[in-house]
C-alpha cells in the first residue's frame, strides 16, 4: 500500500508538470496546442544529445533543453500561431502537423528505435518499505518547485496578473496598457520551457522514442479537461487523481488498463461537468 501511495505521489507530480504548460497556453492564448507533446520530445532528445552524447554536465544539459524548448515555443507562436490567429481549426491542425513533422525529424536524426535516457539523479532509496528512485523523486521536487513558482508568478506579479487579464478579457487587458501579443509570446515561451523540462524527466522515467510526444499530450489533455482549463490548483489536484488512478490500476487491477480509467473519467466529466472540476476557463 505504501508503495502505491509513494509511487502515486511521485507520478502525479510529474503529470502536473507535464500538464501545466498546456493549460497555460489554452488559458491565455485560447489555443489547443496539439504540438505540446513535441516540447517534451525536443526536451528529451536535446538533453540526451547534450548530456549523454557530448557529456555536458546534467544541470547545464537541462538548462539547454529548457532554452531550446522556450525557443521552439516562441518561434511556433511567431510564425505559426500568430499568423493564423482567429482560426482555431487551422491553428490546431497546424500544431498537430508540426508535431508529426518534428517526430519525423527525430526519426531522421536518431532513428526510430527507443533510447534509454540515464537517470538525471541515479540511485534508489527505501521510503517506508517502498523503493523510490532518486530520479522520480527529483522530478517530483522539481515539479512542485516549478508549480509553486508559477503560482506565485501568476497570482502575485505584474506579468502574472497581465496573463490572467489576457485570459479573461483581451480588450480589457489592452486598455490597461498590457500588450496581449507580448503576453502571448511570453506564455508560449514559458510553456515550451516547462514542456521541455517535463520531457527530460518524462523520458528518464520512461524512455526516449520519436513517438513519446503522444502519451504526455493525452495526459495534458486529460488533466486539463478533468481539472478545468485555467486552474493551476485544479491541474495539480487532477494530476494527482489521474496519477493515483494509473498506479492503482497497474498495481491492483491490470497493467493493460493503465490509461482506460483516465479516459472513462474524461468522458464522465465532459458529460456531467464540461467546464471541469475546478475550471472557469480563465487562468487563476
Amino acid at each position: 500500500m505504501m508503495q502505491i501511495v509513494i509511487q502515486g505521489l511521485l507520478l502525479s507530480g510529474l503529470y502536473a508538470l507535464i500538464a501545466m504548460g498546456f493549460t497555460l497556453i489554452f488559458s491565455v492564448g485560447r489555443v489547443l496546442n496539439l504540438a505540446y507533446g513535441a516540447y517534451l520530445l525536443i526536451g528529451g532528445y536535446v538533453y540526451f544529445t547534450v548530456s549523454q552524447t557530448f557529456g555536458v554536465p546534467k544541470p547545464i544539459g537541462l538548462l539547454i533543453a529548457a532554452t531550446v524548448g522556450c525557443a521552439v515555443g516562441l518561434l511556433k507562436y511567431r510564425f505559426l500561431v500568430k499568423p493564423l490567429k482567429g482560426d482555431h481549426v487551422a491553428v490546431e491542425i497546424s500544431t498537430l502537423i508540426l508535431a508529426v513533422v518534428l517526430q519525423a525529424g527525430v526519426v531522421f536524426l536518431y532513428g526510430d528505435s527507443s533510447k534509454i535516457l540515464l537517470p538525471i539523479v541515479p540511485g534508489v532509496i527505501q521510503v517506508a518499505g517502498a523503493s523510490v528512485t532518486y530520479n522520480l523523486l527529483a522530478a517530483t521536487i522539481a515539479s512542485w518547485a516549478i508549480l509553486i513558482g508559477l503560482y506565485i508568478i501568476v497570482r502575485k506579479t505584474h506579468i502574472g496578473r497581465a496573463m490572467q487579464a489576457v485570459s479573461m478579457d483581451n480588450k480589457g487587458a489592452a486598455i490597461s496598457g498590457v500588450d496581449p501579443d507580448k503576453i502571448n509570446m511570453f506564455t508560449w515561451g514559458l510553456s515550451g520551457t516547462l514542456g521541455a523540462i517535463a520531457g527530460v524527466f518524462f523520458a528518464s522515467y520512461t524512455q526516449l522514442h520519436p513517438a513519446m510526444w503522444v502519451a504526455p499530450l493525452i495526459i495534458a489533455v486529460a488533466v486539463v479537461i478533468v481539472g478545468g482549463i485555467g486552474s493551476i490548483i485544479g491541474t495539480l489536484i487532477v494530476a494527482h487523481i489521474i496519477g493515483f488512478m494509473e498506479i492503482i490500476s497497474v498495481a491492483l487491477i491490470a497493467p493493460e488498463l493503465r490509461g482506460v480509467f483516465t479516459m472513462i473519467l474524461i468522458i464522465a466529466v465532459l458529460l456531467i461537468r464540461p467546464q471541469g472540476l475546478f475550471g472557469r476557463e480563465e487562468l487563476q
Binding site: R161, A162, A165, D169, K171, G172, S176, G177, E282
Partner: peptide
C-alpha cells in the same frame, strides 16, 4: 469602455493593479 471589460474572476484590487501595468 461601455461594457467595462473588467477581469471578472480577479478581485477589485487586482483589476486596479492590472491598470497599473
Amino acid at each position: 469602455p461601455e461594457r467595462f471589460n473588467l477581469f471578472p474572476y480577479m478581485s477589485v484590487r487586482d483589476n486596479l493593479l492590472v491598470g497599473a501595468y
